[in-house]
Design a protein around this nucleic acid. Structure first.
Length: 395
DNA sequence: TCTGGGGTCCTAGGACCC
DNA sequence: TCTGGGGTCCTAGGACCC
């Protein structure tokens, strides 16, 4: 039996939040984001869109397009509160709600709409009731899978309602530009266009034929997309938020630099932030990754994995700096970041330690164990290098 | 003042073990 | 002496989403 999966997307959410806080902003061009070096538009009002302003656009460019643009900084705390109102509103209908991001969710309405005579009318009322209660505007997609529901909520904005049954796929989705397909981003779409795939319909046709070229281009993802387009995608609502798999923090520097002190102090506070979040979430990580972006936007990662998970700010900082010094100290850097990965729960660490030779280590702190382990790894690397040199000498 | 920051997942090569 | 694959983990890079 097919489920009734709904995707609800709040329209221009951050901008709408600012309009709710200050009604004088309504019907004015508003952009949310940092107005300074590297600042981009996070979200903008529909009025701002009329000037060509769009999300992810550099703020300076947005101001060029719309000189009277009103810019507000991002206020996650406030938006989060309104987001909670929204999600709790939906939970009054069904507990089967999956939070997809701050401004959207999936929900299983199968039991709710059973026996409903006028399904479109039901969702229109929900949409209007949400507006009356919270002043938030939303678009709703109703379908049998998450993919189709998502495409549905995207189909008509703001305050749209689109129902996509399996038989509606050709009528509704096929004419859409390939860029509007969820999962096809700005790297893949030009490649598909080069292959003569300009619409979602073109993509569907090539999937039916199991086109070799397309399979090579999309890899494993090909099969996912093929399922999506034939109406066979996932309809599973994941109610419990999943544990984070990584905790990271990055920042664009005031200016491109090679200055060791500046970079070190930046890594210092980034590491502290990461550590604090990990501690708050009861997580320890056994991989530390740093990311740097060069002035020409080239991005590099370096990571190291060790045996004893940590969330200690000093350990994270020392390892991050070590990775930086070894690999990037001669580069002009635009952005630096630190991420803790391979996370496990703090309470699981005791179990791990007892499986391990706990007695031998029990008098040592996990920090010391980590540093020992790192030393061992570093030494191994030096030894390998030394032997390489020796080999060369022998030749 | 040219182009953020938070994530997730995939790929491909190499090391290492059996 | 030559030559196997399978499986897992680690690492770097890339694509995508909001």
């Amino acid at each position: 039996m097919a489920k009734v999966i709904v995707h609800i997307d709040l329209n221009a959410f951050f901008a709408r939040c600012e309009e709710i806080r200050d009604s004088s902003l309504e019907n004015k061009p508003v952009a949310i984001g940092h107005d300074g070096r590297g600042g981009i538009v996070s979200t903008c009002s529909y009025k701002a869109r009329e000037y060509g302003v769009s999300s992810a656009m550099p703020m300076f460019k947005a101001k060029e397009l719309c000189p009277n643009l009103i810019i507000k900084p991002v206020d996650f705390r406030y938006y989060g509160a309104l987001s909670d109102q929204f999600k709790n509103f939906i939970r009054r209908y069904t507990k089967k709600v999956e939070e997809a991001s701050i401004d959207e969710c999936f929900a299983d309405f199968t039991d709710v709409v059973r026996g409903q005579k006028d399904v479109p009318g039901f969702f229109k009322k929900l949409q209007n009731d949400l507006y009356k209660e919270t002043k938030l505007k939303c678009s709703i997609g109703v379908a049998t899978t998450k993919f189709l529901a998502k495409m549905g909520s995207d189909y008509k904005k703001p305050m749209g309602l689109t129902i996509i049954r399996k038989k509606d796929i050709p009528d509704i989705l096929y004419p859409l530009k390939i860029e509007s397909m969820f999962g096809i981003g700005k790297k893949t779409s030009p490649k598909l266009r080069k292959m003569g795939i300009n619409t979602i319909g073109d993509l569907a046709k090539r999937c039916e034929k199991d086109d070799r070229e397309l399979m090579n281009e999309l890899g494993k993802y090909y099969y996912v997309i093929k399922d999506w387009m034939s109406g066979k995608g996932s309809d599973e609502i994941i109610v419990e938020p999943e544990d984070p798999k990584s905790i990271g923090n990055s920042t664009t520097l005031m200016e491109d630099t090679m200055n060791h002190e500046l970079i070190a102090s930046t890594f210092k506070w980034l590491s502290k932030e990461v550590s604090e979040r990990a501690i708050r979430e009861n997580k320890l990580g056994s991989t530390i990754q740093i990311v740097v972006k060069e002035s020409d936007f080239k991005v590099h990662n370096k990571s190291i994995t060790f045996d004893n998970p940590t969330n200690d700010a000093d350990v994270i900082f020392n390892i991050a700096m070590n990775l930086y010094d070894k690999n990037f100290s001669n580069m002009m850097i635009r952005l630096v970041g630190v991420t803790l990965q391979n996370l496990i729960n703090t309470k699981d660490i005791a179990i791990q330690m007892s499986l391990f030779d706990y007695e031998k280590h029990e008098e040592q702190s996990s920090t010391k164990l980590l540093i020992n382990e790192l030393n061992r790894k570093m030494k191994k690397k030096v030894l390998i290098r030394a032997s390489e040199v020796e080999d060369d000498g022998n030749k």
